[in-house]
Computed example of a mutant assay.
Amino acid sequence: MHRIPILLFTLLFSCCRGASQQQPATVQTDSVPAYRLDRASRDGIGKFYQGREIAQVMGHLGASWLERPGREQEERTDLLLKALALKPTYVVADIGAGTGYFTFLMAPKVSKGKVLAVDIQPEMIDYLNEGKANRKIINVEPVLGTESDPKLTANSIDLAILIDAYHEFSYPREMMSHIASALKPGGRIVLVEYRAEDPNVQIKELHKLSVPQATKEMKAIGLKLLKNDDRLPQQHIMFFGK
């Protein structure tokens, strides 16, 4: 029943940078070809990683979609919050935090810690600062990252969560390497992604991710799948660690 708003969202708010025609090429990382560039598909940017074309990115004009009234019921963000089992002292990085919808749900759960709300768009940082002020929350810290670096200190976070964001990373290997370096001993990275294995999930293919594909991509930077929690109606909750 969510087909129409999802299609409208994709058409209205996806960036167009992937639409240009590119010549096949490779990018070297540590003497290994990390990326392949080719002709972009309709919903991709023409850049491939581990056999997967990277999806176009949602711009800040999609802020209203992130704050839509039906989001909790559609995605069951209440169940996601329970699945994380946050402790009061945790330092959590919300990567691709956007307007802070989930950031501000997590903040009360880490009352003695904090949430680092990371985004690469200054407009989203403005939303986060406004939301922080309106809610009078002191344990949320907006962080302006880049496409390849979330600007997190090494050995500083207990958990990093990426909600429907990883599949859009222009530099997934670099970003995830930085995030992994930011983990404290025993820290975890959580990928929340629409299930590519489920044809009933009405999301465009490049905006979904399967467990095997995610596992392969995380293995490339030294992470292993610890658990795949399937309590959400449409999304995987994949826990990775060193």
Results as ranks from 00 to 15, higher is better:
Ile6Val: 15
Ile6His: 04
Leu11Asp: 00
Ser14Gly: 00
Cys16Asn: 14
Pro24Cys: 10
Pro24Phe: 06
Pro24Trp: 04
Ser31Gly: 10
Ala34Gly: 13
Tyr35Val: 09
Arg36Val: 04
Arg36Cys: 00
Arg36Asp: 01
Ala40Ser: 15
Asp43Met: 13
Ile45Cys: 02
Lys47Leu: 15
Lys47Gly: 02
Gln50Glu: 15
Gln50Ser: 15
Glu53Cys: 01
Ala55Lys: 07
Gln56Ala: 08
Gln56Tyr: 03
Leu61Cys: 05
Ala63Thr: 01
Ser64Met: 05
Thr77Met: 08
Thr77Asp: 10
Leu79Pro: 01
Leu79Thr: 02
Lys82Tyr: 11
Ala85Phe: 06
Lys87Ala: 11
Lys87Leu: 10
Asp94Ser: 07
Gly96Gln: 02
Thr99Phe: 12
Gly100Lys: 03
Leu105Val: 03
Met106Leu: 15
Ala107Arg: 01
Val110Lys: 05
Lys112Asn: 14
Gly113Leu: 11
Pro122Lys: 10
Pro122Gln: 08
Glu123Cys: 00
Gly131Tyr: 01
Asn134Gly: 09
Glu141Val: 13
Glu147Ser: 14
Ser148Cys: 04
Asn155Gly: 08
Asn155Leu: 12
Ser156Trp: 15
Ser156Val: 11
Ala165Glu: 05
His167Gly: 04
His167Asn: 10
Ser170Asp: 13
Glu174Lys: 07
Ser177Tyr: 00
Ala180Leu: 13
Arg188Ser: 15
Val190Cys: 10
Glu193His: 11
Tyr194Glu: 08
Arg195Trp: 09
Asp198Cys: 11
His207Ala: 07
His207Met: 12
His207Ile: 02
Leu209His: 04
Val211His: 03
Gln213Pro: 02
Thr215Pro: 05
Met218Asn: 03
Leu223Gly: 01
Asn228Phe: 00
Asp229Ala: 07
Leu232Cys: 11
Gln235Asp: 15
